[in-house]
């Protein structure tokens, strides 16, 4: 006691650390309380509700076991939703990353590259709903009053395409997705490429490496970690695609044709869509599928990408 804090002397470092630790709960609790209350508890509730049949206020949730899940498997709407979501994650992801890789090869030595990067990045801070409506106007098919895309096609003598028809919409959304997100991934990858020491590229120049060989032997191995993280970010964001599809494929206020659905649209349609009584149980079961899909893909991606840490 007597050695700890003599009056007028600063406390020993140990004492200071203990005082610091006392700050932990007042600082940490408010944020974590909100986090638990608004994110963790609802997630658990969703999992529980996934095993019930419930049509909302006035009705009592009734435990039905796995009935919701077998219903999902039998449902066309869900099958389309699941496959489309997977397609956006995989095809959109591959497309986005291929484009980003191609850009890293060129942008590294290009003058004005910073400006190009900034222009490509911009769609990332535009609301997906605005992007969707914007594409809706550009891609509209209406003889004599075509949207921009068909206007361009017709002006070079190609027949206009019904971009927004159900049979094409998935691919159109994939294209829009790649267009809107590649800037973000280009920026992430370029930040990693910029950290690669330039003399490694100079040595490959002396070796006579082609751009592909430089990418294969220098850029890719040295940005592998970042590519892995970017892949996880892509998966997380692609799994919840909703607004873009909703406004692009449909009339706007109620759900689009089921061929174009994603899991996000499915959950919304079964819970807050304007058609009939909500089926909260089914919606929650589909939401659980979303979480499972993200978890499985993220874990798989991390395993696939794992390798030794690189030290310079």
């Amino acid at each position: 006691m007597s050695t700890a804090t003599a009056p007028g002397r600063p406390p020993a470092p140990g004492a200071h650390l203990a005082r610091k630790k006392r700050l932990f709960f007042p600082f940490f609790l408010p944020a974590v309380a909100l986090y638990v209350l608004f994110l963790l508890v609802p997630t658990v509730a969703t999992v529980v509700l996934g095993f019930t049949d419930w049509s909302g206020a006035g009705d009592t949730p009734e435990f039905t076991g796995l009935a919701n899940y077998s219903e999902l498997i039998a449902s066309d709407a869900f099958r389309y939703s699941f496959l489309n979501t997977l397609l956006y994650i995989v095809v959109g992801g591959v497309g986005t990353f291929l484009l980003a890789f191609l850009f890293t090869m060129v942008l590294r030595e290009m003058r004005g590259g910073k400006v190009v990067r900034a222009i490509l990045f911009f769609p990332n801070i535009v609301a997906p709903i605005a992007l969707g409506m914007f594409f809706g106007i550009i891609l509209v098919y209406r003889p004599n009053r075509q949207g921009l895309a068909n206007y361009l096609l017709e002006s070079v003598g190609i027949d206009a395409v019904k971009f927004l028809a159900p049979e094409n919409i998935t691919w159109v959304v994939t294209g829009c997705l790649i267009w809107a997100s590649s800037g973000f991934y280009i920026t992430i990858l370029m930040a990693a490429v910029d950290r690669i020491p330039p003399y490694l590229y100079e040595d490959s120049d002396i070796a006579g490496a082609t751009p592909w060989q430089k990418f294969r032997h220098v850029t890719l191995p040295l940005t592998w970690d970042v590519v892995g993280v970017a892949g996880v970010l892509w998966t997380i964001s692609a799994v919840k695609i909703f607004e873009l599809v909703f406004v692009l494929a449909g009339p706007g206020t109620y759900s689009p044709p089921i061929r174009s659905w994603t899991l996000g649209v499915f959950v919304f349609d079964r819970s807050f869509g304007d058609q009939g009584a909500p089926a909260y149980g089914t919606a929650c079961a589909a939401a659980v599928v979303m979480i499972l899909l993200v978890s499985v893909l993220v874990v798989a991606l991390r395993r696939l990408m794992r390798r030794d840490v690189i030290q310079y």
Binding site: L39, L40, V267, S271, Y280, A287
Partner: peptide, 15 residues
């Protein structure tokens, strides 16, 4: 928490 899609919490939150 960043990986949890909003769709998975929106129903219990609404209720």
């Amino acid at each position: 928490g960043m990986g949890i899609p909003f769709q998975t919490v929106v129903i219990p939150l609404f209720i």
